[in-house]
Design a protein around this nucleic acid. Structure first.
Length: 585
RNA sequence: GCGAGUGUAGCACAAUGGAUAGUGUAGUGGCCUCCGAAGCCAUUGAUCCGGGUUCGACUCCCGGCACUCGCACCA
């Protein structure tokens, strides 16, 4: 019986062997297996169509010849049929579904099966990366939420993941900020809410320097002093950063985010000279208008649009530190792949960065890690414009999460008024923040996304609340009957699935492995969200149609097994997305 | 101007070149003496326009139109 975690992988292997046995262009046959519309079975292989085309023969007979060579192992597990122009359809037999679900009974088995995909690889994920001295706002949401989910997916599928928060702690904004701190700092305000005070001071410095060139000059001097290591400025800088990190941490805890490294731009201060010299010596950069720049003559745009790696005043900019960062990640972490979870509007920058790094490392004989810009769209308000407050300011992430929690509290109170106040607050925090995370993740990251409280916190549709409800409902089945979930005794003696509801649910459950592969390969968590939503729907239909706690011990055992596995996969999936779950709600 | 991205029901979103383009909301009609109705079942409704490649195109290519975004020392 067919028990591998990766069913599609197994089918592809078997089809390759069968194609060879059938004498089909040895070695070059690509099975093209994918999950199919449930009307046509569970999986379909489309590869025969392309092969028939290349051979100049009709596809149906070839498909039949391949099927005739399939191993007994496969035929024992699947109903196999040739259909349509030449698709090979595979429908999992109920006994196989039961065997798979029995073999994958806990997160240990799921993780063991999943971890083959990226074993031995090191992936650095650069995400969140806010600027110090400013509060995180809604613009920081997606990078944090998507980056965390992607990191968890990669770790679950076997990679060593280095989560690095590349904080903006060194830019030119510090000149103005330090200038203002020295003249207008309000110690009481710092004690109350440090980051709000530093944010205010930055605005003071910015306004003053724009109005008065003399202030601008003084601010620039403060920056030069800081960069030269002036103790007073350095201490102030340190203080600002410490306060900023503490404020960020509060947000990260609510969103279930943790980093392995927080290496901000300042960390690379002493690492940029290598960038200047190696790029210059390798002939990759040139001088233009006093700046050190890189052009890419082969590129339609970057042949005239330069990447500035050193400003004309001799200072570094973010292109410089980004280049130095790639080198560090290669040398220190031995990164095979580096992901940048950053707004798609910075696409040009990353394209230039990757081109430059590729040439630089090729010239210096280094391995070039795979570099990927995991881009995402903008969060829009209901007016279709970037989300802002009514007064046109950025919405602070803290305020956003507070409001989500508050709205969820009203809902919980309405639905479960008998729960203790304290518990309703806890539930609301998890539902509220989870709803914000899920709304962001459930949509293709590449597109802009329309922010709507009503749709987000709603109980209907593809929302966090719906999933958390389905999960809490399953937990309550076990709780109510004094059973523990996944207890082998409760599942003992389960026979094969029979009712349409049971079979549909079991078929959906075994497709978790393919969903995981898809979401991880594309770095698109929304595939996992969609799957979990469909799984929860399948469970609800099953649960509505088939009573679980029945007299017949055999029927009861197999239905409890389905409940337990649905719970397991919902828990695993939501955890991979970074959401916390509930016992009841 | 140059470049990139996006156009799918009233609204919000899916569709890893595959079979009859899925779902949610909103609309309509059913289902609680029954393990959580925050639920389930049924039903109405869409691929911007024009060419092309392909056995097969929302998907790939070319040309329009519309919207969004990016383009020299901010990140």
């Amino acid at each position: 019986m067919h028990l591998a975690f990766d069913l599609i992988g197994e089918l592809e292997k078997a089809l390759r062997a069968a194609a060879d046995a059938a004498g089909l262009e040895p070695g070059s046959f690509s099975p093209g297996v994918r999950t199919s519309d449930p009307r046509h079975g569970d999986f379909q292989a489309n590869g025969v169509l392309a092969a028939a085309k290349r051979a100049g023969k009709p596809p149906q007979p070839i498909a039949k010849a391949v099927v005739a060579q399939l191993s007994g192992d496969i035929l024992e597990s699947f109903e196999v049929a040739v259909a349509g122009p030449g698709f090979i359809n595979f429908s999992a037999k109920p006994a196989m579904l039961l065997a798979w679900l029995t073999a994958h009974r806990s997160s240990t088995e799921l993780a063991a099966g999943a971890s083959a995909a990226h074993r031995g690889e090191t992936w650095v994920v650069d995400y969140s990366s806010p600027n110090a001295a400013k509060q995180m706002h809604v613009g920081h949401l997606r990078s944090a939420v998507i980056g965390e989910a992607v990191s968890r997916l990669l770790a679950f599928t076997g990679a060593r993941v280095v989560r690095d928060n590349h904080i903006g702690d060194w830019g030119t904004q510090y000149g103005k900020l330090i200038w203002a701190c020295k003249r207008h700092l309000d110690e009481e305000a710092v004690a109350r809410d440090p980051i709000a005070e530093f944010e205010r001071l930055y605005k003071v410095g910015n306004t003053a320097s724009e109005a008065d060139p003399k202030v601008m000059e003084e601010a620039r001097n403060e920056l030069v002093k800081l960069q030269a290591g002036d103790p007073e400025n350095l201490a102030l800088w340190q203080r600002i950063n410490t306060a900023s990190l503490a404020a960020f941490q509060l947000i990260y805890e609510r969103l279930g985010i943790h980093f392995d490294e927080t290496l901000g731009e300042s960390f690379y201060n002493d690492k940029v000279t290598r960038v200047y010299t190696e790029l210059a010596q390798g002939g990759i950069s040139s001088q233009s208008d006093g700046a050190q720049v890189v052009f890419h003559p082969e590129h339609p745009r970057f042949k005239t649009q330069p990447m500035i790696v050193r400003k004309s005043d001799g200072a570094a900019n973010y292109a410089t530190t980004d280049l130095a960062t790639i080198l560090y990640r290669l040398e220190h972490f031995h990164a095979d792949c580096i992901l940048y979870v950053v707004d798609k509007r910075q696409g040009d920058h990353f394209e230039q960065l990757f081109l430059t790094a590729g040439k630089w490392f090729a010239k210096t004989g280094r391995k070039v890690p795979k570099l990927v810009h995991v881009d995402f769209g903008t969060v829009l308000g209901e007016d279709g414009k970037p989300l802002k407050t009514r007064t046109g300011d950025n919405i602070k992430l803290k305020d956003l999460l507070d409001e989500a929690s508050e709205r969820a509290y009203l809902l919980v109170t309405e639905k479960s008024p008998d729960f203790p106040e304290e518990e309703r607050r806890q539930i609301a925090e998890i539902v509220g923040t989870g709803s914000v995370q899920y709304a962001d993740l459930s949509q293709n990251r590449a597109s802009d996304y329309l922010f709507s409280w009503d749709k987000m916190i709603s109980l209907d549709g593809n929302t966090a609340a719906y999933l958390l409800y389905a999960l809490a409902r399953i937990r309550s089945i076990f709780r109510r009957h004094g059973l523990s979930c996944g207890d082998p005794a409760a599942e003992a003696g389960a026979d094969v699935f029979q009712t349409p509801g049971e079979i549909a649910l079991a078929r959906k459950l075994v497709k978790f492995s393919d969903t995981l592969r898809l979401a991880t390969e594309t770095l698109c968590p929304h595939f996992l969200c969609l799957y979990l939503y469909e799984l929860a729907g399948e469970f609800s239909s099953f649960y509505n149609a088939d009573k679980v706690i029945v007299e017949d011990p055999v029927v009861r055992a197999r239905r409890l097994l389905l409940c337990a596995r649905t719970l397991l996969i919902l828990e695993t999936g939501l955890e991979l997305l970074g959401l916390k779950t509930l016992e009841r709600m």
